[in-house]
Design a protein around this nucleic acid. Structure first.
Lengths: 349, 349
DNA sequence: GTGAAAGCGCTAACAA
DNA sequence: TTGTTAGCGCTTTCAC
């Protein structure tokens, strides 16, 4: 690894000059001829700054910590991490992903990261809910991802849950569905509340009544299948909006048992949390893809703008291959989601 | 953050002495009274070494890089990462997880990690196959996880694929299945070859013939469902061993369409790569759980033993909550897998 | 046994 | 406009 010292020697200047030039702080301080020489030499020797040494001096590491409980158990976090990494590498940061399977290891991992000098943290949950931020995180720049600080102290970047449900429900209405059910989540959760709201609003905007008999909020377990089964028998819905993969699968399963064809007899739109829909039921159902990538991407930009105390609107995207959101938009807190029509949605008279 | 300097001042000794003591290199070099004082003061001030400063001096960072393409897209990597993190934190290392969605970003991320001074790398694939190690990784200690170096230069830690298939097939035989099918993978892959071998050996050990008409190697796509469907009609198998989730789902689907009950008419054992089985089909199928956690765990130990050029048999597990493999065992290259009987396996006469 | 001193690679006052 | 100096927190000879 070449050092500034080597460059200085080979160019016949001092290290400080090299430092100045290579950090682009040479404007009006170093003669441009010299500066060019230095840059050329750095290029020639393939100089790369040693981030450790720099950090030791500046006490800024350009390291970002990504904390999540779910990296390990769902592919859900995947897109978020990809997006976060894209933004981080774009901005010259390194993203360190840490998963804290339990409460115990959490603080431990966080302090480890802090000792390594992380400049800031992302704290990601797996489904939008009010969240208590661990105490150890409150003293550093922090952005919540797919979560909302229960005490309102920290900014967050989340999917636009109301719109998810509104769009899905509207799609079902437009397809001609008459009795549209919502299979929700019975745990208290922001995402659930807002999706129910979007579902309801869509119905009302279309001049339909909201009928709570068509709403079943269930858990991810045995009784859930029964509840959905009952819904089929009692209400005979012809359209379903489902909170997530598992719930969409219950509908799929119930339909199969009754000989109902999806796309003909009933239409199903599900939110694809765990990629189960994408991976197995793909041809059968229409899915809403959560904006994982975008959430990761924008939360990193938000975090970095907090750390560097400036807007990032000037930072363009030079050589990234990943699909990036338009960079001229300001950093959003809510992100619209994409409805993906992979499977058939029945068109009725 | 307290520094050694502070401890030195408050104790009235020099930094070098403090360094000696706090690194346990004081035996016979520092009077034990002094040493105790230093330790007490360090404890009192809550001293934590600054890893950056240390690394700058020693050019060892105790950072491990975990490179994978699939962290982002499957939950498969999750267990591996958990295991790797458990081992790393046990051994005083920090694990940096990096996913390289495409070929392009891979080298970039690796060099970034190298500049941060990673002491070694884990290179993980998503299913056991011969793998070309990226050139940029060949100059640092490296362990492959769930993959085999195509040029045989680097050690790897993998599931015992033959046994997976042998055990699953044997289980089906013991349950009384007469016509046991294997739904495999048509891509060339170590895991596929070895599982086919295990399937075959189990049949032969049981005095059964191997009938290649009962084997269907398919891809993860549309025609696959048709192929499995044909298998049902042509061969009427009553037992299935499936390469992974998606393939198990094809069987599940075909059975459902024919009104066959799993656990009564047919038995299905699938390898749970993507947690789809665990999350949606859990009550229906018997799954083989790949030893993700263990793979991560043991590969880190292997890597660290390479880095530190010593055995790790003396390192015990003090305060980890995660389930750890027994620590007295030597580092294994192949890891046995667990067959999980979640669903019914038909018992026939 | 202990401490002084040098240095890892870099940045930033301050001098010149 | 450039170089000198000091120092980030730590480890490691080498004198004493």
């Amino acid at each position: 690894m070449t050092t500034m010292k080597e460059i200085a020697e080979k160019t016949g200047v001092s290290v400080s000059t090299v430092s100045l030039v290579l950090n682009d702080r040479d404007e009006g301080r170093v003669k441009s001829g010299i500066a060019d020489q230095v840059r050329a030499m750095a290029e020639k020797l393939g100089y790369k700054p040693n981030p450790l040494a720099r950090s030791l001096r500046t006490s800024k590491t350009r390291i970002l910590g990504f904390i999540s409980e779910e990296v390990a158990t769902t592919p859900y976090a995947g897109g978020i991490i990809l997006g976060a990494q894209a933004a981080a590498s774009q901005l010259g940061y390194m993203l360190i992903t840490v998963n804290t399977d339990g409460e115990d290891s959490e603080d431990e991992e966080i302090t480890a990261l802090k000792r390594y000098g992380a400049d800031g943290f992302l704290y990601a949950k797996m489904s939008n809910r009010y969240t208590d931020v661990p105490e150890s995180l409150t003293s550093t720049p922090l952005v919540l991802v797919d979560a909302t600080d229960s005490r309102g102290r920290f900014p967050s970047v989340e999917p636009d849950e109301v719109h998810i449900a509104y769009d899905a429900t509207t799609r079902l209405i437009e397809a001609g569905c008459q009795r549209i059910a919502y299979i929700g989540c019975s745990e208290p959760m922001l995402a659930q509340d807002r999706r129910l709201e979007g579902y309801r609003t869509a119905l009302e905007d279309a001049g339909r009544g909201y009928d709570e008999r068509l709403v079943r909020n269930v858990l991810n377990n045995g009784p859930a299948l029964q509840a959905v089964s009952d819904l089929f028998d009692e209400q005979r819905p012809d359209g379903f909006f489902c909170f997530n993969d598992a719930r969409a699968w219950y509908v799929y399963e119930c339909a199969a048992r009754r000989g109902l064809t999806i796309g003909k007899d009933i239409s199903v739109i599900g939110v694809d949390n765990h990629r189960v829909l994408a991976e197995t039921l793909e041809p059968q159902l229409t899915t809403v893809e959560l904006p994982h990538f975008e959430m990761g991407y924008w939360s990193v930009r938000k975090l970095v703008s907090m750390i560097e105390k400036r807007d990032l609107d000037d930072i363009a995207t030079p050589e990234t291959t990943a699909p990036l959101p338009p960079l001229d938009s300001p950093i959003p807190a809510m992100i619209r989601c994409t409805l993906i029509e992979k499977g058939p949605v029945a068109q009725r008279a």
